Simulated scan of single mutants.
Amino acid sequence: MEPADIVQLWSVRKTYRTAAHDVTALDGVTTGFRAGTFTAVMGPSGSGKSTLLHCAAGLDRPVAGKIVIDGVDLATLDENGLTMLRRERVGFVFQAFNLVSALTAEQNVSLPLRLAGRAIAPAEVRAALAEVNMGDRAGHRPSRLSGGEQQRVAIARALITRPAVVFADEPTGALDIKASRGVLGLLRGLVDGQGQTVVMVTHDPVVAAYADRVLFLADGRLVEEFTGDVDAESVAARMAGLESSAC
């Protein structure tokens, strides 16, 4: 049996009003993200890739269309309901690690549970850190961790609620090559080993090549996708074509 789509988008449209005119960031996007898959979202600057992630994650509401996460239609939820859904079913990893500087790695990972009012099992938090190879750094504050280590803690924090999907926005953008490879290998391992669903926005073809599938956006529309054995050279060539068309 084929795995179901954990996240589904139908004809999603998003516009932003500026002083001069309305800007269409997403223009009728329909797609889905299957359970246990790793998808990269790419496109030229202004193509709508970050808007797609924000709408798909329930961080921003579209002006038209339908978005479903783990069987829940986001349009049926008020702001409190959206907040609860994001806390319980969605994980987030950003380019800026967004760790609380005054808290240890262990305390940062347990923060989503505290915010949700859930009981915190220390063994569960330690297991989450061990999953990202940070078990021996549990008592360290962010200032004592490298960029790659901080991002690993951020990933553990994203996973602590056992979310249906993890959305990552340029998760390696602030890392050097070695740390970047480590984080991408970790995300790839979570998909392959645990069936985690990951949706990642990136501008880097090498980063995108870690995914099972690459979606290409241009002018707010889904224009192409690569699936299967994704390679960086093919992704780079397609991006070059989109960027030259955008000039």
Rank of each mutant, 00 (worst) to 15 (best):
I120Y: 05
F97M: 08
F94N: 06
A57T: 01
S47T: 04
N80M: 15
L129K: 05
V41I: 10
A130T: 15
R137A: 10
V153L: 13
A138E: 01
A119S: 14
Q95M: 05
R144F: 13
R114S: 13
L52W: 01
E124W: 12
I69M: 01
L74K: 02
A128C: 10
V153F: 12
T76F: 11
G43I: 07
Q151Y: 01
R137H: 10
V63W: 02
Q151S: 04
A105R: 11
I67T: 02
L129P: 12
A105L: 10
S50F: 00
V153I: 14
T104Y: 03
A121M: 11
I67P: 01
L111V: 12
G58F: 00
E124K: 14
A56T: 05
S47W: 05
E149L: 06
V63C: 05
G36P: 00
A138C: 02
L53S: 00
K66N: 14
R87A: 08
D73K: 14
D73W: 08
H140P: 13
V68Y: 07
G139P: 12
T76K: 10
T76S: 13
F97A: 05
L85Q: 03
S45W: 03
A130R: 15
G117L: 11
F38R: 03
T39H: 05
L85P: 04
D60M: 10
L103N: 08
D70M: 06
A56C: 03
R34P: 04
G117P: 11
L53Y: 05
R126C: 08
Q95V: 07
N80R: 15
A123R: 15
I120M: 12
V100W: 12
A105Y: 09
G139M: 13
R126Q: 11
V132Y: 00
R144S: 14
G65L: 02
G81F: 15
Q150S: 11
G147A: 07
P112Y: 13
P142F: 02
R118A: 15
A128I: 13
A96G: 15
D70F: 02
T76P: 11
M42F: 05
E131R: 14
V125S: 12
L99H: 00
T104G: 04
N108K: 08
N98I: 10
